[in-house]
Amino acid sequence: MKIEVSAKTRNVQGTGASRRLRRSGWVPGILYGGKEPALPIQVEHLALMNNLKHEAFHSSILTMDLEGRKEQVLLRDVQMHPFKKQVLHVDFQRVAQDQKIHIKVPLHFVNGENAPGVKLSGGIISHVMTEVDVMCLPKDLPEYIEVDLSHMNVGHSLHLADIKLPPGVEAVALHKGDNPVVATILVPRGAAEEEAVEGAPAAAEVPLVGGEKKEEKGS
């Protein structure tokens, strides 16, 4: 999915200037990285808000049209107003085709309904991770990474090392020696409680003085 964002250079800076810019429907931002110096920019608020609704806008290489000059960029940071639906500031990073980028890519889970743990045992899938931190060259960056759950059983977990990554893509956690859980299938709560009751020790009758009896749980 190719996404283009339009921007203009921002000549006036400062808190007051940023407030006036926001009131006029623009968002102050910065474009940095590469061999060029950081450049103050501004983007239209409405267009930015529409783009932020798309998952790919957060994890894909974007084309920035900067007053007629086009550059490849990544969205790096978005500062939102504490309670208003308003973007206060946005950061973009230039992309060099010969340098690896470090970015979070969303996980798309598939075939969960066909997993034995769900289909046969009524288990519940828990998505422990929804995105993964990766390193790769820009040309190898995937829009998302697919996670197949079709083989999972109840009580089993899928780890990051179990996921097939696209060619040229490396998981940062694995590079550091970590192998976190990505998803697991849990036993349904009702079934777990029923199993616990069935496994409890049976009550034993203990005679008391006077011929009465009481039930005492076995230890």
Rank of each mutant, 00 (worst) to 15 (best):
V172E: 15
L52Q: 04
I103S: 03
V169H: 03
E71L: 11
N111A: 00
K139F: 14
A161H: 12
H175L: 15
V132M: 05
S59G: 02
K139V: 12
N179V: 06
S121Q: 15
I61H: 04
S150T: 10
L165M: 06
N111W: 05
S150H: 11
V118E: 06
L52R: 01
Q79N: 13
K85V: 11
A171E: 06
E143D: 10
P166E: 02
D162E: 13
R69E: 10
I124P: 05
K100F: 14
K100I: 11
R94D: 04
E131N: 12
S59R: 00
D91C: 01
K119P: 06
Y144L: 11
G68P: 05
D65P: 01
M135Y: 15
L66G: 07
H58A: 04
E170C: 14
N179M: 07
L174K: 08
T63H: 13
L160D: 00
L75C: 02
N179E: 09
Q93P: 03
V154Y: 05
H102L: 14
I103M: 03
I61L: 04
A96S: 13
H156L: 14
G122H: 05
A115F: 04
G117S: 10
P142A: 12
G177D: 08
V110F: 09
H102M: 14
L174M: 13
L165N: 00
G177N: 08
E113L: 11
V78A: 02
N111F: 07
I103Y: 08
P82G: 01
L158Y: 13
A115D: 02
L158H: 09
G177K: 02
R76G: 08
V132Y: 05
P82K: 00
D178M: 06
D98R: 08
G68T: 06
C136I: 07
V95N: 01
L107V: 04
E146R: 10
P166M: 05
P167F: 09
G112M: 02
V154K: 09
N111C: 02
P106I: 00
D178N: 06
D91S: 03
L174R: 09
A96I: 12
S121R: 14
A56E: 13
M152H: 04
K84G: 11
G123L: 07
Q99S: 14
M64K: 03
D162K: 01
I124C: 07
G123F: 09
R69P: 04
T130G: 15
V147E: 05
K100S: 12
H89T: 04
V154I: 14
G155Y: 04
K164R: 13
S121D: 10
F57H: 01
A96Q: 11
Q93V: 07
A115G: 01
V95S: 04
M80V: 14
Q86W: 14
M135F: 13
E55M: 12
P138Q: 02
V87M: 09
G155M: 01
E170K: 13
S150K: 12
D178Y: 09
F83K: 11
P116C: 10
H89I: 09
A171S: 06
L62P: 03
P116L: 07
A171I: 02
